[in-house]
Structure formats: structure tokens, C-alpha cells
């Protein structure tokens, strides 16, 4: 296990580094971002001064080496927008997004797996048809629309929930629900089809021959075997949310990494873009390790290879 993790870490480290280098050069290719930070009527002297202050007047390679030097000490430079260390900005934003991702995926997984498993038990029954319809709707609806409708219905119309903000538990209900809908829809589909194929497996027949009740067959025998593709999809969705639930963060005022990245890209805030890419990539790497561990726990055949 230890050697496996360290091998993964080394390879991921290399990919991470290449990624950051690539983002560095691609971002710089767009030229000096001075125009974005100075009012439109700022004279050229101010633009030059801005460029000089932040090192954009240097040749790209020189900028690159300066960056590398800082990287060794985990110093990504300062945010152009806020004159604070870029890494600090990113690390402030990350926990919010991670929590959003965690809660949404956890809820989506639990709801979807149970629903999918029960739907698979009686395919084409009323329950199955309704579950399939709802899951397809959920997977197809755009986040933005659900969020706004959610606010209009639950906050403005029924006044059950607050519209936005991060302080109280009630304020997390809508954003987490909105973020969970699409993964839930997708996972219901996967769980259902995976369960259907597992339920027709030979060892399920054995379990029935042993006299097992349907609950045992579904939740003990079939479910674990059906979970592998579900974990894959859930992991993919989690990665998507970590990368930036931009819309939800913007609408509900959550200061997360998605919003930070979009703003940084629009404003060409290079340091934050780089720090953000790095930290997000590390988060995804950890997520992949967690998924691999989940695989190994679920399926002993994978464990032993």
C-alpha cells in the first residue's frame, strides 16, 4: 500500500508540475493584464509602471524562472487583484468548495444508490418508471435554472429558506440540493443499470437458492458488486464540483474556488490561476486515491493485483 501510494504520488507530482508549467505559459501568452486593472483612461505611463511592478515587462523565460524559484518555497506570487499571496486566497476558498462537494456527493450517492437499487429490483414497475423519469430530468436540467427556480420557490415564494450566504445550516440547504441534483440523476441511472446486470448474476441465484430474503440479496449480495461503476461516476462528478461549482457559488454567494478561478481568469490574475490550478489538481489527486482505495475495499480481486 505504501509503495503504491508513493508511486502514485511521484507520477502525480510530475503531472502536476507539467500542468502548472503549461498554465503558466498559456496564461502569459495573453499579454500584460495591465488593461484589466487600470481604468480605460489610464495613460500608458501607468500601464508601463504596472507591468514593471509585477514583472510583466520581463521576457517570459525570466518570469518563468522567477516563478520556479518561488514555487520551491510554495510562493506563487501575489494576487494582482488583492495584493495578497495567491496561495492564501486559494486556500481560503478551497474548504468552502470541498465542503460543498462533499455534502452534495454524499447526499446524491446515498439517495441515488438506494433509489437505483430499489428500482432495479422491479424493473419497469411504477417505482422504476418514476425514478427513471425523475433521474433523467435531474441529470438534464441546467444548474443555473434549478438554482434560480429554487430561490424563487423556496426563498421568495414559500419563504422556507434563506436566499443566499454561508453562515447558517439553512443557507447551505439550497446550494447543496442544487449541486446534488445532477449527480443524483446520473448515479441513479448508473446504479440502476449496474444493479440490474448484477441482479442477473449467477451468485444472486446462489443466494436465492440459499433462501435469502430480497433485502439481503439487494443490499448484501448485489450492491457491493454493483458499486464499482457507481463509484467511478460519483468520483467524476465530485471532481467536477471541486473544479468549480461556479454557478452555484456565484448565485448563493459562496466564496469558493470556482468563483475565484473564474474571476482570476477574467482578470488574468496569473498567480491565483496557477495556485488555484495546483491546489485543485492536488485535491483531485487525493480524490483519485480515495476512489482507488474504495475500489480496493469493494473488490478483493482488485486489492490483490
Amino acid at each position: 500500500m505504501g509503495s503504491y501510494l508513493s508511486k502514485r504520488a511521484v507520477w502525480s507530482g510530475i503531472s502536476l508540475f507539467l500542468l502548472v508549467v503549461m498554465v503558466f505559459f498559456m496564461a502569459r501568452l495573453t499579454g500584460s493584464p495591465a488593461d484589466l486593472y487600470l481604468p480605460i483612461d489610464a495613460p500608458n505611463s501607468m500601464r508601463e509602471e504596472f507591468a514593471r511592478l509585477h514583472g510583466f515587462d520581463q521576457p517570459v523565460l525570466v518570469q518563468f524562472f522567477t516563478f520556479l524559484r518561488g514555487l520551491v518555497m510554495l510562493d506563487f506570487g501575489e494576487s494582482l487583484r488583492q495584493n495578497r499571496p495567491a496561495l492564501a486566497l486559494v486556500l481560503e476558498a478551497m474548504p468552502t468548495t470541498l465542503l460543498l462537494a462533499f455534502y452534495s456527493i454524499a447526499i446524491a450517492l446515498i439517495v441515488a444508490v438506494v433509489t437505483g437499487a430499489l428500482a432495479a429490483w422491479r424493473p419497469n414497475s411504477i417505482f422504476d418508471r418514476i425514478a427513471t423519469l425523475l433521474s433523467l430530468i435531474g441529470a438534464s436540467l441546467p444548474n443555473f435554472w434549478i438554482a434560480i427556480v429554487g430561490v424563487l420557490v423556496f426563498a421568495v415564494g414559500l419563504e422556507w429558506l434563506p436566499t443566499s450566504g454561508t453562515g447558517s445550516v439553512a443557507q447551505w440547504i439550497l446550494p447543496v440540493a442544487v449541486l446534488a441534483i445532477r449527480p443524483c440523476g446520473l448515479i441513479v441511472q448508473i446504479a440502476r443499470s449496474s444493479m440490474i446486470s448484477v441482479l442477473s448474476a449467477a451468485y444472486v441465484k446462489t443466494a436465492r437458492a440459499k433462501g435469502a430474503k430480497s433485502r439481503r440479496i439487494i443490499f448484501v449480495h448485489a450492491l457491493r458488486n454493483a458499486m464499482l461503476p457507481v463509484i467511478t461516476v460519483a468520483g467524476d462528478q465530485a471532481a467536477g464540483i471541486i473544479n468549480g461549482a461556479v454557478i452555484v457559488e456565484t448565485i448563493f454567494g459562496f466564496p469558493g474556488i470556482g468563483k475565484l478561478m473564474i474571476d482570476s481568469i477574467t482578470y488574468r490574475d496569473f498567480a491565483v490561476i496557477q495556485a488555484g490550478v495546483m491546489v485543485t489538481a492536488i485535491a483531485i489527486f487525493m480524490l483519485n486515491v480515495v476512489i482507488d482505495i474504495a475500489y480496493a475495499i469493494l473488490d478483493p480481486r482488485i486489492r490483490m493485483n
Binding site: I148, V151, L152, A155, V156, E159, P162, T163, S164, G165, T250, I251, F252, G253, K259
Partner: peptide, 18 residues
């Protein structure tokens, strides 16, 4: 001062009294 990027949300906040 609270920051909400989406106009519909800002409008909704006043409507609900938030």
C-alpha cells in the same frame, strides 16, 4: 454589504427581506 453576482438573487433578497 453582501456580494451576490446574480441579479435575480439580489432582487429576491430584497423581496424576502434578507
Amino acid at each position: 454589504f453582501v456580494f451576490r453576482g446574480e441579479s435575480a438573487l439580489r432582487a429576491a433578497m430584497v423581496k424576502t427581506g434578507e
